[in-house]
Design a protein around this nucleic acid. Sequence first.
DNA 1: GTCTATAGACTGATAGAC
DNA 2: GTCTATCAGTCTATAGAC
Lengths: 212, 212
Amino acid sequence: MAADDTRTAILSAAERLYAARGFADVTMRDIVAAADVNLAAVNYHFGSKDELIAELFVTRSLATNRERLNELKAAEEHGGGRSHIDAILAALVGPTLRGCLGPDKQRSDAARFMIRASIESIPPIRKIKNREVDHLKRFAAAMRRALPDHDAVDIDWTLHFALAMAHQTIRDGERLTKMSDGRCDLNDVQAIIDRIVGISVQALTGRAKARA
Amino acid sequence: MAADDTRTAILSAAERLYAARGFADVTMRDIVAAADVNLAAVNYHFGSKDELIAELFVTRSLATNRERLNELKAAEEHGGGRSHIDAILAALVGPTLRGCLGPDKQRSDAARFMIRASIESIPPIRKIKNREVDHLKRFAAAMRRALPDHDAVDIDWTLHFALAMAHQTIRDGERLTKMSDGRCDLNDVQAIIDRIVGISVQALTGRAKARA
DNA sequence: GTCTATAGACTGATAGAC
DNA sequence: GTCTATCAGTCTATAGAC
């Protein structure tokens, strides 16, 4: 097995296992068994378990952010520099939701890994997460451009809640399915995105109306 | 130290540490050090680490559910058997939000422990969590009674999203504070409850209007 | 680069004196 | 009930042969 294959095999096996079972429950022995490589290979290629997790997180974090910003840029170009609020919010929650709930299995591991990483605060990730704040500020800024008459506070809360709805749906969709006796359909990702975006937009416009 | 004091000291130390650092990072040695009791005391009083966690979770779970149902009952009595949708949603998210973000520190540990327990799926907790679904169904039923003309699916999604907003605010309020440069005030708990309830109600009534 | 073997440091749990 | 001492198991990380 070539060097690059070993590295890649470790990365994808680790991501799959971490996504499914969390960081605490997955040992390096589990990873090397799943990747069919030697135990020492992890430390050779990554230095330590934490550095392996950090590499996964950085890679995926950059990829997700890039995808979001691409959608945001497309929305702003289409709208002549100022995009509709719907398109901005869809660019924010769409990539992650499609990755986790959609049919693509490999992406699903990636997205579920990121959700887990954002929950189980492991030391190497905590540092990187601070950059996420800057990324979200770009979306908040775009939202302010789209709705110049709205309070910045309301926009921040709305952005926060939109992410909350998306993440909880990914993390605990099973509970929703049980509670609704299967009425709520988690397979129709676009409908979920529309629902979250709709509620968020309504929260902003409704609040503005209430003040007028 | 009397037997009951030791038991209680272990419980409260464990809850505090788990709330702050998660299950994986807190060892039994950490707990007994914080509680100032002997290492063997945990196994003597609880049998195992998992049973200690389970006891904490069951106790708090029952307490939170009781508090929610009390508020729900009060709302239904006040409304003459059919409570306003606002009051039902406030009964759902209020107890947890007040516990976590309010000034009361002991309650804060309890609520943050529950949030963590609902995230980091440890074996003994997973079984108990299924009962939570039945608990939520009672709120969904109350919401259907309050809004008999609404789709059950929309009500289920709204309940799911209301919990999502509350949990994310508790779990990652720090990010919101950073992102908004301190504009979003996490200390005014009632305002947060009102905001979440307001958005949820609007999501339901707005959707009904859109269909009409 | 890949492997075996093992070091060194934890963990949860328990036996037995008091 | 409380304690000390310790077990057996697990983990990550590494040294050194190939």
